[in-house]
Design a protein around this nucleic acid. Structure first.
Lengths: 139, 139
DNA sequence: TGAACATATGAGCAGTTGCTCATACGTTAC
DNA sequence: GTAACGTATGAGCAACTGCTCATATGTTCA
C-alpha cells in the first residue's frame, strides 16, 4: 500500500513536522532489536523461566520440575533465551545448568512492574483488560 | 502432560530446592501482566509508534504519515497501546492526538538497549542472531 | 439535516508461535 | 564398545498476530 507524506487534508496536519520527525526516528535495526528482545520477554513461560533463574542457577530438568513443564518445552525456550543472551549455560557432566546472563533483565522486570502498578493505582481500573487478551491466553 | 516433582533421577537434582523455589516464584497474574506488556512492546510497529510519540504528541494521521503505515494499521495498534496505558488519546474536534502515557516506557527502552549493547561489545558476535528471527521477519 | 473528514473497529487471511512427540546428541559408567 | 541418562532439536499442529479491506462512529461545517 502506498502512503503519501500527508495522509489527511486537515490544516492541522503538520507536514513539516512529519518530515522532521522521520529524520529523528530510531534506526530500523535498533527498533527491530528492541522488538525482538521484548518479543522474547513477552511470553509467560519465558518470564517464569527468568524469574526462576533469578533465584540462582538451575539445571534443565529442575527448571522443568519447578515450572511443571516438559523438558522439551523448557529446552526450546532456553534456546531462545540463549539466543538473546538472557541466560547462559554451564555444562557439568551431562547436566547443563542455566543462569541469568545479565543484570538488566531483572531491572527491566522491575521497571515494567512499576509501570503496571502505577497504572492500577493512579488511574483506576477502567477497562484495564490489557488489550491483547490479558486473560484467556493459556491453552 | 503429567510432570512429576522430579523429572530426572540424577542425585544432583535438588528436590527440596525445587519445592522451595515453587513457593518463591512470582504470582501467575504478575507473570501474565509482565508478559502481556512485553508482548505489546515486542512488535516493531508498536516500538516505532512509541518512539515517534516520545518526541511529542501526534494525531493518528500524522503518525501514519511519519511511519508510512495505513491509518487503519496505526489505529489498531494504538488500541493495543491504549489498552496497556502506554499511550493516551486527547480529542480535539475530529482529530485525536496521542501521547506517551508514562515515563517508564522510555526508561525500559533505554535499559533494554543497554542490555543489547553490552552483549555486542562484551561478548563478541558469536551467533548473535537473536534467536526468534532477528532478520527476515518483515513481510 | 447531510456531506466531509478523522478515527475506530470487525472480518478474514497469511505468517508466526509454543507446544508435543519422536529422535538425535553428548557425557558417564560399566 | 554399549547402555543409561540429561539435554537439544526437527516436524507438525492448533492458536494467535498484524495487516488490509470494508464499514461504522463521532465531529464539524454549510
Amino acid at each position: 500500500m502506498f502512503i503519501p507524506d500527508d495522509v489527511c487534508d486537515l490544516v492541522q496536519i503538520d507536514l513539516a513536522r512529519v518530515r522532521a520527525l522521520r529524520a529523528a526516528l530510531t534506526a530500523p535495526e535498533t527498533v527491530q532489536t528492541l522488538a525482538d528482545t521484548f518479543s522474547v520477554l513477552g511470553d509467560p513461560t519465558r518470564v517464569r523461566i527468568l524469574d526462576a533463574l533469578s533465584h540462582g542457577e538451575l539445571c534443565v530438568c529442575d527448571l522443568a520440575a519447578v515450572l511443571r513443564l516438559s523438558q522439551s518445552a523448557v529446552s526450546h525456550q532456553l534456546r531462545l533465551l540463549r539466543g538473546l543472551r538472557l541466560v547462559r549455560p554451564r555444562r557439568d557432566g551431562r547436566v547443563v545448568f542455566y543462569s541469568l546472563d545479565d543484570q538488566h533483565i531483572m531491572a527491566i522486570f522491575r521497571q515494567t512492574l512499576q509501570h503496571v502498578e502505577e497504572d492500577q493505582s493512579a488511574k483506576g481500573a477502567t477497562g484495564a483488560r490489557g488489550a491483547k487478551g490479558a486473560e484467556g491466553r493459556r491453552r
